[in-house]
Nucleic acid binder design. Structure first.
Length: 671
RNA sequence: GCCGCGGUAGCUCAGUGGUAGAGCGCGUCAUUGGUAAUGACGAGGCCGAGAGUUCAAUUCUCUCUCGUGGCACCA
């Protein structure tokens, strides 16, 4: 007699099952409701198909749509398979490659048949319809184990070059699994190589819970030397309600787009005469100036000293720093020569020395550090700069304010002894925390460790990584609450880095702040200090920024606040709007009084109705509208209407000044 | 840089092988109106740049350029 398998369930109970039975059998044994609701199973912690037999005594947790994370992952993966099946059904000869779940859905990379153009968004409705048909057909998803050879033969016979290439690279001894959509080897059944797991059948998907979003180019295996495939993106959910919520979130994000708001609020513009660089308008630059003032106070208070270094430096300097060899592709290089302009275009002799616009500030800061002789008693030395840098980014990478070719960092470099590193990094963690809180951001801290290609010894990397870990721990931030985790291999070539990832008001994340502990550049540029022993020592150099760049940070703020900036950052803090032109004089007095109190106020004397003015300034996201009419003039008051609020308040001028001043005070200067 | 899509008035966009249209905005005039659009009239365009096809190109083709969604990149 065979022994029964002991299957323990999350409630602690144990069921005995025949050998060869499956999680699906357990579900059925428990009850028909569960059998229907079950989507997959967690067996000994691993997500598996319901129909895959147990291999011994096991711990089992059945997954239903209530286990949302697991269920979404499964559903999205299945949507991707259904997508591939639909594309091949509609367009025979299409090669399939790879199709995973993503954060909000799925994609599949395919290669259109040779006799046809790559797929375009016009093909999506037909593919969606076919996908719905496959889901409605409720085809079983059947797992089979195949030999590697069998699979390679199949892919080669069917002209699936990519799949065949992939199968060949899988380890020979690994069990390869395939999934049938439909009964194996039956007409109309479809097969993909896949590790699984999958839902029991396509009918477990909600045909109204997905939408194909777009097509895009993507390289086979992410390598730009390989063939370019068509990636079909979809968003996929468990039900229609979730899908609609997601589509609404996308709409909300589009409404907040900083490029749209930047134009509507007249903050900046971008132009093809300087693509990748920003033309800041008066209102946008006001935001910049407020941020700059804020950051200066933070830096001054933190013992930093601000410097200003050259925009253009000789190539030899970049050679020595290592940038010339490694990053020249991204540098704007210029000859140290006045070009001959007698011919059609400027002519360069080719004999001039090369110079380059700085792509970063660090080498210049080292040069400042190296002036004179530094004693260990002077350390740490913290040099800050609102450093304007240029990087010749790949054109496809440019995006509004978020990725530009000219940008200004809130940069600083801290030169210190090895013993001071942890303390300096800890202080920085606290400064960053205070700053992000002032803007209402939640954030996570990550440690990006050594990449494969790097400068410096393993010993130094060990030390540098450990210092960063220790500092975060000392700041009390190496915890789940701060999203603390390590990102192996993500560090810069010269140093590991801590990264601050902000989460904005609608849940998107942005990497802005960073601190990097660098022993390479001080070595290459020969920075030294005199130690207690009278000998020369290498300082450690900490590269750090909190905003990252002003351009990007302002872009993030615009989207975070959906344009409704806090009063202290608002370019115009209040508009005085008279109801009738008889009141214009009083309106101007009010404007003058508030302006004298240091507020940014404009009066709107245009011959327009008050409704019109209210609407316009509301759309322009002015925080407060001060309406004045006969009553207000007689009483020496204003009626204040605040953006986003229904109530109005009648205030005396003194009260209005006090109220607005309180809001206009930067958060770091409030009592 | 690669793939897809796009570039028409300040903005959002429609349209056509015979050199153009709407709404908003802008200007003028009338209107002086209590909290999200008062009305009338008017001005405004090398239809992204270059080349080709054509009697004729904003429209078709090619190249370039910029933007855009991805990919790759992000020191």
């Amino acid at each position: 007699m065979t022994e029964l398998l002991k299957i323990s369930l999350p409630d602690g109970s144990v069921r005995e099952m025949e050998p060869g039975s499956t999680p699906g059998d357990v579900a059925a044994a428990i009850g028909p409701g569960l059998a229907k609701a079950a989507l997959a199973a967690r067996v000994n912690g691993e997500v598996r198909d319901l129909g895959r037999p147990f291999e011994g005594d096991s711990e089992l947790a059945l997954i239903t749509s209530k286990d949302e994370d697991d269920a979404l992952e499964l559903a999205r993966h299945d949507f991707a398979h259904v997508l591939a099946e639909a594309v091949q059904a509609l367009y025979p000869g299409t090669q399939i490659t790879f199709g995973p779940a993503t954060d909000d859905g799925f994609y599949y990379d395919v290669m259109a048949p040779a006799n046809r153009e790559p797929f375009s968004s016009e093909d999506l409705p037909a593919i969606e319809e076919k996908m719905r048909a496959i889901i409605k057909a409720d085809k079983p998803l059947v797992r089979e184990a195949w030999s590697r050879e069998q699979l390679i033969n199949k892919w080669e016979a069917e002209g699936e070059a990519f799949k065949a290439e992939w199968a060949k690279e899988l380890p020979e001894d690994e069990e390869l699994t395939v999934y049938w959509s439909g009964n194996p080897n039956e007409d109309g059944s479809w097969l993909d190589m896949c590790r699984g797991p999958h839902l029991p059948s396509t009918g477990k998907l909600d045909p109204q819970a997905f939408k194909l979003m777009r097509v895009a180019g993507a390289y086979w295996r992410g390598d730009q030397n390989n063939a370019q495939l068509t990636r079909i993106y979809g968003t996929g959910w468990l039900n229609k309600k979730q899908l609609n919520q997601h589509l609404m979130r996308l709409e909300e994000a589009a409404k907040r787009d900083h490029r749209k708001l930047g134009r509507e609020m007249d903050l900046f513009h971008l132009s093809d005469v300087a693509h990748g660089s920003v033309f800041w308008h008066p209102k946008g630059y006001r935001i910049w100036r407020e941020l700059e003032g804020y950051m200066r106070r933070k830096m001054d208070g933190g013992g930093y000293r601000e410097i200003k270094t050259p925009q253009v430096m000789d190539a030899r300097q970049w050679e020595q720093s290592g940038h010339w060899g490694k990053y020249r592709e991204n540098m704007f290089v210029i000859p140290d020569e006045v070009p001959n302009t007698e011919d059609d275009g400027p002519v360069i002799s080719g004999e001039a020395d090369w110079m380059a616009l700085k792509p970063m500030n660090c080498p210049a800061h080292v040069l400042v550090f190296k002036q004179g002789i530094t004693s260990y008693r002077d350390l740490p030395i913290r040099l800050g700069e609102m450093g304007c840098c240029h990087r010749n980014e790949p054109h496809g990478a440019l995006h509004g304010l978020m990725r530009v070719r000219q940008f200004t960092q809130d940069d600083a470099h801290i030169f210190c002894t090895e013993n001071q590193v942890v303390e300096e990094v800890r202080k920085f963690c606290e400064m960053a925390d205070a700053v992000y809180q002032d803007f209402g951001f939640k954030y996570e801290i990550k440690l990006a460790t050594r990449p494969e290609q790097r400068f410096g010894s393993d010993e130094d990397w060990d030390k540098a990584e450990q210092e960063l870990r220790d500092a975060v721990a000392e700041a009390g931030m190496a915890t789940e609450e701060f999203g603390w985790e390590e990102l192996p291999g993500e560090g810069a070539f010269y140093a590991p880095k801590l990264e601050w990832h902000l989460t904005d008001a609608i849940g998107r994340t942005w990497q802005v702040g960073t601190i990097q502990s660098d022993r390479v550049l001080p070595e290459r540029l020969d920075a030294t200090y005199i130690g207690e022993d009278g000998g020369k020592h290498r300082p450690v150099m900490l590269h750090r920024a909190i905003f990252g760049s002003y351009e990007r940070f302002i872009g993030i703020l615009i989207e975070h606040y959906a344009g409704r900036l806090p009063v202290w950052l608002s370019p115009v803090q209040a508009v005085v709007a008279p109801i009738v032109s008889d009141i214009d004089g009083y309106a101007e007095n009010v404007e003058a009084t508030l302006t004298a109190a240091g507020l940014r106020v404009k009066s709107d004397l245009r011959n327009e109705k008050i409704n019109y003015k209210v609407r316009e300034h509301s759309l322009a996201k002015v925080p407060h509208i001060l309406v004045v009419g006969k009553r207000e003039e007689e009483e020496g008051k204003v009626t204040m209407r605040t953006l986003g609020e229904k109530d109005q308040r009648v205030l005396t001028l003194d009260e209005a000044v006090a109220f607005l001043n309180a809001e206009a005070t930067p958060p770091d200067m409030r009592a």
